[in-house]
Amino acid sequence: MHKPSPPLEGPDAFQDKIRIVLVETSHSGNIGAVARAMKNMGLANLWLVNPNSFPDEASYARAAGASDILDRAQVVPTLDKALEDCVMVMGTSARGRKIPWPVMPPPEAAAIAAENSQRGCVALVFGRENHGLSNDELHLCHYHIHIPSNPDYSSLNLSMAVQIMCYELRMLYLRSLEEAEGSPYLKSMESPADAGWDVPLAKVGDVEGFFTHLEQTLHDVDFHRRDNPRQLMSRLRRLFQRAKLDQMEINILRGILSAVQKAAGVSGNTKSTQAGKASTGQESGHV
């Protein structure tokens, strides 16, 4: 009926203490999409309150590899039943209310949910596709969650709303890993100086050899005048230094310069070019 699912990632507490509750879902495909959104972010605890149709082929087709979330989903007749063993309830709401209720955006809601999950299950409740949660259902919630979408087009697909909350919870989980034992998930990799780059950062001597080669090549093709340099080389130096070049990138650039010199008929006529080739092991025209 459905594809086998890859295993979940993350500790049981992260998977199971946050309970995603869908109330009277009309379209079973949305249930499958929610399961996929949950598994993307490492959550697994799905409860369905009186769904119109479940389980069925549409829900499993939309789950796309998250069929295990559907297999273990709890189906109950009422929202009270889904919440009775929870220590906190948070419901999504796009509406203002006559009586103000504690309301917060997703990042703050996720932080409170994660904190309270240490004491027991926390339910995140999502309403019907067409009109959300009723007033009585919202009264069961300790907090309301408001997703600040475009006011001119504020309606979110059910799985999109769930994905937003699951993402915020995922980020909290990854930050906790990073603080505890060093997780690479949230660390940027932007230059050869960062862990994970495939080629070492270029050494200062090799970079300087490139700048010497660049200046000579620009002179050879009559682009740069040494008797009237202005700020050309300073600006080019600033540009390339900002790029934090790795060793392979230096070699590629040196190869391009050698090819330009060859095309201009001046290849190999300067000491600086020859010295540059020796420092990088770069043959003319070859990378």
Rank of each mutant, 00 (worst) to 15 (best):
H213Y: 13
Y143A: 04
F210A: 00
N150K: 04
Q163C: 01
P11C: 15
L232Y: 08
S159F: 03
V21D: 02
D152S: 07
G285F: 04
E215S: 14
Q261F: 05
P229K: 06
Y167T: 02
H224R: 10
A94I: 08
V266L: 13
Y153M: 09
V49F: 08
D227V: 10
S26R: 09
R97S: 13
M160D: 08
P200R: 07
A64E: 05
A111P: 09
Y173M: 11
N45H: 12
S284K: 06
A37W: 07
V287R: 15
G127I: 02
S5T: 15
Q274H: 13
P229V: 02
L83P: 06
P4D: 15
G285V: 12
Q74C: 11
H224G: 07
R97T: 11
K277T: 04
I252P: 00
D68K: 02
L201W: 02
C121K: 12
A61V: 04
M104P: 01
L46N: 04
S26D: 10
T217K: 01
L124N: 12
F14T: 05
S67H: 15
E115C: 10
M233T: 09
A82F: 05
T78K: 07
D71R: 10
L48C: 10
G132D: 08
A44T: 03
V162E: 04
R62L: 04
P200C: 03
P105G: 12
Y153P: 09
S234N: 09
M171C: 06
Y173C: 02
Q247A: 11
N157Y: 03
A66Y: 00
Q231M: 08
T78L: 07
G32L: 00
A13K: 07
K203H: 13
S155V: 14
D206S: 14
P77I: 09
Q241V: 15
S258L: 04
L70V: 11
S67W: 10
A66C: 11
D56S: 15
R225I: 05
A44F: 01
R62Y: 03
V287H: 14
L245R: 01
D16W: 03
A114Q: 13
V207L: 12
E215W: 10
V103I: 09
E249S: 12
P77S: 10
E215H: 10
H2V: 03
F223V: 14
L43I: 13
K98M: 10
A264W: 09
R242G: 15
L177W: 03
L236G: 10
R225Q: 13
D152G: 10
K277C: 11
Q15C: 14
